[in-house]
Amino acid sequence: MSEASAAPAAELAPRSHRAPLAILVALVLVAPWVVYPVFVMKALCFALFACAFNLLLGYAGLLSFGHALFFGAASYATAHAALEWGWRPELCLVFGAAVAAVLGLATGLVAIRRQGIYFAMITLALAQMFFFFSLRAEFTGGENGIQGVPRGMMFGFLDLSRTYVMYYVVAAIFLLGFAILHRTVHSPFGQVLTAIRENEPRAISLGYKVNQYKLIAFVLSAGLAGLAGGTKALVFQLASLTDVHWNTSGEVILMTLIGGLGTIFGPIAGAVFMAALENYLAQLGSWVTVTEGAIFVFCVIAFRRGMFGELSRLLKRPL
C-alpha cells in the first residue's frame, strides 16, 4: 500500500487549478462593470481563440500558421447563417464551429503528414488559399465583408442586442470552451498528446498511432477557434477579411507566446494583453504594429516562458 502515504496528495496537488479557476471566473463576471464591455467581449473571443491554438502548439507541439482559416471561416459561416438564413444565434454559432471543425479535419489530414516548418507552411498555404477564396467569393461580401449581422434572440428569449446579455453569453461561451480545453489537456488523451510533444519517436515505439491523436487535437482546436470566430462575428455584427487574414494567424501565435506557451491560463492573459494594446495604443495609428513588435521582442528576450510560464516557475506549480 505505497499509495497510502504522502504520494496521492503529491500526485493531486500540482494539477489542482481550483484557485486560479475561481479567480478567472470572478474576473470574467466582474469585468464588464469595470471595463468597457465590448472590449472585454473582444478580449474573450481572442482568449478562446488563443487557448484553442495553444492546445496544438503548447500541448501537441504543432505550430499552425493558418489558424485564421478556422476563426475566419466560422465568422463568415455564423454571420451568413444569421443574416441570410435568419437562424437563431445558438444554431449559427454551432454551425460556425462545425464548419471550422470540418475545415480542420481537411486541413489536418493534409498537414499532419509533415512536421515542424513544413507543417506550419502547409497550414499557412491552405489559410492563404481560403483568404483569396473569401476575397473572391460572393457570400463573403469581398472587401466589404458581411455587415449588419443580427445578434438575434438566443434560445428565443435572450435578447443579444442588449450589451450585458450579449456579454454574459460571450462569457458563458468562453468559459465553456475553456472548460473543454482544460479537460482535454488533463485527460488520458491529453497525456498522450503531451507524450507526443515530448518525444514523438518514443510515443510511436510504444505503439501510439500519433497521427490519429494529432488529427483529433487539430479538429478540436479548429472547432473551438471557430466558436471564437463565430462569437466575434455576433459581437461586432461583422465578418470580414481581417478574420481570415494571415495577420490574425500571427497575432494568435503572439498572444500564446506572450501569455505562456503550454500553460493553461497563459493564452488568456496574452489575448487580453494584446487586445488592450490595440485598444489603448490606437491613437498611435500605424505605430501600433511597431509597438506590438517591440513589446513582443522584449517579452521573448526578457521572459521567454511568457507571463504565466514565468509565474508558474516562481510558484513552482503548473498554471
Partner: peptide
C-alpha cells in the same frame, strides 16, 4: 513528465482509454 507518468503512458496504451479527451486524467 514524471517518472511515474512515463511508465503510465505505456500502460495506458496497452489498456486502452487513451483517446478519451472528455474524461479526467
Amino acid at each position: 513528465l514524471t517518472v511515474l507518468e512515463n511508465v503510465r503512458i505505456a500502460l495506458q496504451r496497452k489498456r486502452g482509454s487513451s483517446f478519451d479527451f472528455w474524461r479526467s486524467d
